[in-house]
Design a protein around this nucleic acid. Structure first.
Lengths: 128, 128
DNA sequence: TTGCGTGCAAAGGTTTTGCATGGCA
DNA sequence: TGCCATGCAAAACCTTTGCACGCAA
């Protein structure tokens, strides 16, 4: 486990503390902290996830997104058409309902960042 | 859009027609059809997805999985801990309930292959 | 001083693409 | 015959890793 507090680590924690409104890709974090090389960035991102300071999610393009764990900023789940790629978001009410269902069924605290995959109405019509 | 019916395409369609019980990675399809190079395989996999013959999903490791679209084989959704990686599946009842919620909210036909990300009970405890 | 963390460069794995050739209609 | 699809190789992309050096404690 981590032992030292380096500037790099401190800088990344500060970044997430100051940016709690959304999730960021490694790319975005890097653009805010250009002095930190990618290798170190990924190492720290992974370490901070393990420490429970930030959390790692999967974005629509399947790359990682990172978010401050204490973020009090509820998001809504998305659904992406696996045929045409169209992505929409579910309303807040549905998102909360699903969170509750998942929690009571699995004991996990589901993230609001989940991306469902499915067929949109247009693509369902196309399907003979 | 596709025009020609080549053996490669026919072979892949046959593969999925005969294997409807689960989703397959490109790697797995390739092991069944070793004569088809990866580039062609990916091109056809993508084309068949667009044609609505198979569908493309995201696996736990974020690589693509492909499944016959007509598959009458219901699966259950999964939830994966974004801290420790532990993955469990939701029971069938919860899965169906969520599918209905998503459908009525978005008009999309949600896939049972969705993977939620969240914090498992152990990791929630560790979080101070 | 000790050994963990960093930085660099290179590798890893999946998926995509350019281009000349081959094969379906 | 005309054009689409294939095959090969190489690239693209995000992320990980090996290794020697630097720095926190």
């Amino acid at each position: 486990m981590a032992r030292y507090n380096t500037h790099q680590k401190t800088a990344i924690i500060s970044f997430f503390t100051e940016h709690q409104t959304k999730s960021y890709s490694a790319e975005e974090v890097s653009s805010y902290l250009p002095a930190i090389p990618r290798s170190t960035l990924y190492r720290l991102l992974s370490q901070l996830s393990a420490e429970g300071i930030i959390r790692q999610e999967t974005g629509v393009d399947r790359t990682s997104l990172y978010r401050h764990l204490g973020s009090g900023c509820p998001e809504h789940m998305h659904i992406r058409c696996c045929r045409c790629g169209r992505t929409e978001h579910l309303d807040a009410e549905t998102t909360r309902l699903i969170e509750k269902l998942v929690a009571s069924s699995s004991g996990f605290e589901a993230l609001d960042s989940t991306i469902f995959e499915g067929l949109c109405s247009d693509c369902m019509k196309e399907r003979k």
